[in-house]
């Protein structure tokens, strides 16, 4: 039973990170129907920004927790700026182009950013400091659930609650939902759709940056390629839950996290990705719109 609990909690932690990144995919897709392939790179850039910030702050002798908070903040600001700029450069000029064009542009941007970080940093894995301290009250549970995992779970939960409040209760959140449901009508009531798209990219990027910092600190090393794997996994989570659906992205993240965790624990860790993507294939065959997605007819 203890082993099961451990796997369950491990899956929950992992899933919450997938959910956090998947939200960015699903929100962007909901508004402009684009799979934003640079999203994983935003996550990677967030991790690197946090690493640089943390290294500097360590020199000044700050404690771990304050470094974590400040590094996350810098990463969030930096990644959001990247997300905003990428949309303006790579997607906005293609707003009225055929759907394939922005997709290719996204893949190109993703390759560009990976190689930019490769050149600016290094191709090797670089160590990332463990920024989450060992909490004393977690000592008794350490063998099944670490302090770092607790921190991940708490942070992602808080961030997701804030996000849903923004989307539910603020005027901008309402405009985001309206734009996702009927873009032309949103324009007809006076929504500046370009602004809403920018806001969506900024929010999605901020979430990815938080995910990047948390995971980097938990795993302890990063390189230019981590965004690709994380991006593919989170994209899988978004599709599992039903792309375009915000609760779907969260659910998809957890389902994927548990699948991987239990598959690793009960079968073999070599098969982690096999199970993740087998699940994706099965969902696509039997429920193409995803768990919470609605199959809709093409709008005319």
């Amino acid at each position: 039973m203890e082993y099961f609990t451990q796997l369950f909690l491990g899956g929950l932690t992992r899933g919450s990170i997938y959910a956090l990144i998947a939200l960015g995919y699903t929100m962007v897709y909901g508004i402009i129907e684009l799979i934003n392939f640079t999203h994983g790179e935003i996550y990677m850039i967030g991790a690197f920004t946090a690493l640089i910030t943390a290294s500097v702050l360590t020199l000044y002798g700050f404690n771990e927790l304050s470094i974590l908070v400040m590094a996350s903040l810098v990463a969030v600001i930096y990644s959001s700026a990247y997300g905003y700029t990428i949309e303006k450069i790579a997607y906005k000029p293609l707003r009225h182009a055929p759907r394939l064009s922005p997709l290719i542009s996204a893949i190109g941007m993703s390759i560009f950013l990976q190689n930019y970080v490769l050149l600016a940093q290094t191709s090797d894995f670089v160590p990332f400091p463990a920024l989450v301290p060992e909490f004393a009250f977690m000592k008794a549970y350490e063998h099944i659930f670490s302090s770092a995992e607790l921190m991940i779970l708490l942070t992602t939960t808080v961030v997701m609650i804030i996000l849903s409040c923004v989307i539910k209760f603020t005027k901008t959140g309402m405009a985001m939902r309206a734009t996702a449901q009927d873009r032309k009508m949103a324009m007809l009531v006076g929504v500046d759709v370009n602004r809403i798209i920018s806001v969506t990219f900024i929010i999605g990027s901020a979430l990815a940056a938080v995910g990047g910092v948390l995971i980097a600190s938990h795993i302890g090393q990063i390189n230019f390629y981590i965004g690709f794997i994380a991006g593919i996994k989170a994209f899988t989570a978004a599709v599992l839950g039903g792309i375009g659906s915000i609760p779907g992205a969260v659910l998809g993240g957890f389902v994927l996290g548990w699948t991987e965790s239990f598959a690793t624990g009960y079968v073999s860790s070599d098969y982690e990705d096999v199970f993740a993507f087998a699940l994706l294939v099965l969902i696509l065959i039997f429920r193409p719109a995803g768990i919470l997605g609605k199959s809709k007819s093409e709008k005319v």
Partner: peptide
């Protein structure tokens, strides 16, 4: 072109955006 998943109140508030 009603926003299908927004409530009637929210649709009205969107009109006053």
């Amino acid at each position: 072109h009603i926003f299908p998943e927004l409530s009637v109140m929210e649709n009205l508030h969107m009109g006053a955006f």
